[in-house]
Design a binder for these strands. Structure first.
Lengths: 161, 161
DNA sequence: GTTTATGATAAGCTTCCCTTATTATAAGCC
DNA sequence: GGCTTATAATAAGGGAAGCTTATCATAAAC
């Protein structure tokens, strides 16, 4: 009955795996001389997938704060992998485009990613792997909903004023 | 054939989910007024599970560097949740024990953890959830093996000298 | 008994993310 | 049309979770 704390509980294992994965990815990218961090790679991939979007939209899709994204984009821009162009429809906004130089990088990142994930998922069947991916997507969606709920609560308290 | 980079690839989703989970756990623990960080909670749980071990053993079990653990333990010790006692068998080593005060905290952490994970895994069957946990454990083990391989490589290069 | 290995830790760094405050511009409202 | 409010980006600064490298004490090996 007494629920003993388990270092192998789902939450702990998830965080462990993510930490180790990030470290392994970092070593791989560094080893390949790509010169970016995992966070920058993730940003670049999202930027490429949403080419021509504004920063707010990309940030929302990535689930991070706009300011956090802005910092990543600064770095990617200084490396010549993305461009910020003014939005003709709204002079406050900038549209993000990847440069031709980014294409090769994204391909390289992708190769490292696939090779690494092949090693990491060794011993897991493709079906299970896909089930894990879907489950994690579900968890991610749940977590985003929880986040919004928690942000909504403090406002609800003040709504009475 | 051309593998387009997918923001929903397993690795990205895993890292996303872990980031959001850590943030949600942090808010929960803060909300409950427990006064520790997720990393400290993880350390405490491991320390309790391995009560009376040396720091090196705990660090290895957690998969982090001894120095990183030492910093967590400093904090947990200053809060009165763990004790460092000299190892009678080796005066270089210290043995880690949790204090009675830690018991209540661990129970509270556990409650928060269970409640949060129930929300997070909403819509996932218990069987799938267990499969995800097992798969993640497998991935974690693979990642640790990869880590060791990569550390072994540079030495292998120098072995010829 | 001297050299080498090991347990802990001090010092300082990196990555990834956050919050808060500012600035420029757009949109809504008399 | 001018005034207020909302929104896009970003400057400034901070915190959590790790890492590496160097140091010190002690143990083990030769």
């Amino acid at each position: 009955m007494t629920p003993r704390p388990d270092p192998d509980a789902l939450g702990f294992v998830l965080i462990d795996a993510a930490r180790l994965l990030r470290a392994a990815f970092e070593r791989r990218i560094a080893g390949a001389g790509l010169g970016i961090t995992p966070g920058e790679a993730r940003t670049l991939v999202h930027a490429a997938a949403l080419d021509g979007s504004r920063q707010l939209d990309i940030a929302q899709r990535m689930g991070i704060e706009p300011m956090t994204l802005s910092t990543y984009l600064d770095r990617l821009q200084s490396l010549g992998f993305i461009e910020r162009r003014p939005d003709p429809a709204d002079r406050r906004a900038r549209l993000i485009f990847t440069t031709p130089a980014a294409d090769a990088l994204i391909r390289d990142v992708r190769v490292e990613q696939v090779e690494l994930m092949t090693q990491v998922t060794a011993g897991i069947t493709p079906e299970d792997r896909e089930l894990v991916r879907e489950s994690l997507k579900r968890m991610r969606a749940n977590l985003r909903a929880i986040e919004e709920d928690q942000q909504a609560l403090p406002l609800a308290k003040e709504a009475g004023r």
